[in-house]
Design a protein around this nucleic acid. Sequence first.
DNA 1: CAGCATCGTCGATACGCATCGATGATTCCC
DNA 2: GGGAATCATCGATGCGTATCGACGATGCTG
Lengths: 337, 337
Amino acid sequence: MPTSKDVAQAAGVAQSTVSYVLSGKRPISEKTRKKVEAAIEQLTYQPNAGARALAGRRTHVIGLVIPFIPELEMGSIMEFVSVIASTARQFDHDILLITDDEGAAGLHRVVGQQICDGLILMQIEDEDERLPVARSLNVPVVLIGIPRDPSGLVCIDADFEMAGEHCVRDLAAAGHSVISVIDWQPAVTERHVNYVDRFMHGTDVAAQALGVTVLHLPGGTDRDTISESVDKALASTTGKPAFIAPDRTIQDILRRDLSSRGLTLGLDVSVIGSASPTLAELQPIPLSTIDLRPAEVSRQAVKIMCQLLEADSHGPHESLELVPTVITHRSSTLRPE
Amino acid sequence: MPTSKDVAQAAGVAQSTVSYVLSGKRPISEKTRKKVEAAIEQLTYQPNAGARALAGRRTHVIGLVIPFIPELEMGSIMEFVSVIASTARQFDHDILLITDDEGAAGLHRVVGQQICDGLILMQIEDEDERLPVARSLNVPVVLIGIPRDPSGLVCIDADFEMAGEHCVRDLAAAGHSVISVIDWQPAVTERHVNYVDRFMHGTDVAAQALGVTVLHLPGGTDRDTISESVDKALASTTGKPAFIAPDRTIQDILRRDLSSRGLTLGLDVSVIGSASPTLAELQPIPLSTIDLRPAEVSRQAVKIMCQLLEADSHGPHESLELVPTVITHRSSTLRPE
DNA sequence: CAGCATCGTCGATACGCATCGATGATTCCC
DNA sequence: GGGAATCATCGATGCGTATCGACGATGCTG
């Protein structure tokens, strides 16, 4: 592997000059720059990351802490991971994967060994054991999700409250006076991620404002739970029923349950679910969805991280950003009157 | 951050002694070791990764190249990623994420900058453009998947041929004389990953050996394609029909199609699909599955990589490992006679 | 044309660790 | 009990880059 010294020699300049050509931190004459660039090209020189980190005190690596095999929702997690990684590259950084089975020790490790310049944490719980660590580390930390006490932390998430509001508003506009919200599955609610509460709160706020009724019903991944919830919903509804099922697994089960009762989506009943546009279109009856913008949340998370890194701010920061959600009408909801 | 020099000072020894205590590459007296370990503990010393990489010419990082948002199968990819990351930790390595939108240039980059000691590539296609690069890099590369020409490469994958064979054998044993194999969805087959061919070949081999008939039918993510395939299958079957649907998306559609025709799984018709045990059990009729062992494939990939790294073998290697698949009977297949 | 600021480049040093050769301290054997 | 072999430790050096101070060259001002 060629070093910057080799490049310097080939270009007939000092090693430091090569460094300055690369960083642009000092003026270099056009002539010298050309010579150096030619030498770099010819030797296919690439700076050594270890040496750069050692001398420059910057690794250009961001640690991403991913949840430990939650067995469910792997697909949506992958979307975050994938977008985070490619966005990081746009900011000239790489992503190091840290699995959550290392726990808080993992955070201390990568920061202590200076493998990473900063950390992005996913799947933040209400009372997350990683929070005290996040606050005490002297590197920037960005949370995807919002804990109960976000003080001293930098958080970003989809605006679940807005999402809940939008769903109710739209269904109310379509003429529904009773709207049933199916909860996320137990595996999610047990994890005490508070986006569930935020979503529910949004539905309540909208309901109150519009004078419609919102029913909160239990979710589950078995048919029976959903079936019971649908029973309850139908029993308390006069007029055509409406459902909001933000959990992807549940919306599948719900749709099947409704059609087995002979109810046609978009005709006898409205359903708003959550899915990528592609998947939503693929359904026999294209699904109206609330898009929680995972890609945009991921991009913002990386962007915020890189801003913090640039600001070189070791002191604690605090901010909270909510990404607006988008509701899309397809065929599974009644048309507004 | 404390350095090994600080530790040495605190313990009253030379810096090199601290290094030897940590690496164990030279004998150290019990007494000295204790002193050094105490100092490390007290200062919460952690070696600087950059310096270590620079001096030791080893980063302890493995690059993982993940496919670029294929929009489908994200869930299963995440399972690979997750297991690879935690297995790597067991071998004292970390995982750096490289998204495939960087293409071959990304490989050159991470190797050239010496960010990684080796690379694991996923989702290998028959004629993958990354193969020439993989062969020419002077770091170990492990492929998950098998290209058309695996010469000079280290490959690992599930034994799809065995999987195909097993499925047919089991259905034949259950009394089926005509067995329909539904192809993967076009999004997969268009990618020219050859596990599809290997699986199909396995089914043919078993069919020939057992004297049963195997029908290969097109797959798709829309109802109509599957429905047509089922029509064809039923038309050519005397006795009870049997289906093999290794594509996860397709098996869902297939199951629904069959029940809409009034056929009960495990009673009127056999279906073998592919799913994690958890998901398979969750179905209304628990699904008999062929397990393609993604976790085991991931573990092996990391293990092989670490062996190559240990052997310090820069020269090209060549090997091919197939992980045995496991077939599990649940209720969606007829019982053997 | 002397004096001074500006520009472009160089040499030296630091970053933190691994490793090699050397050196003193022990132990062993005849 | 003296020389060889072994053991435990130290000091010095190198890994490749970033950065700082210094310095010669150039341009400008009065």
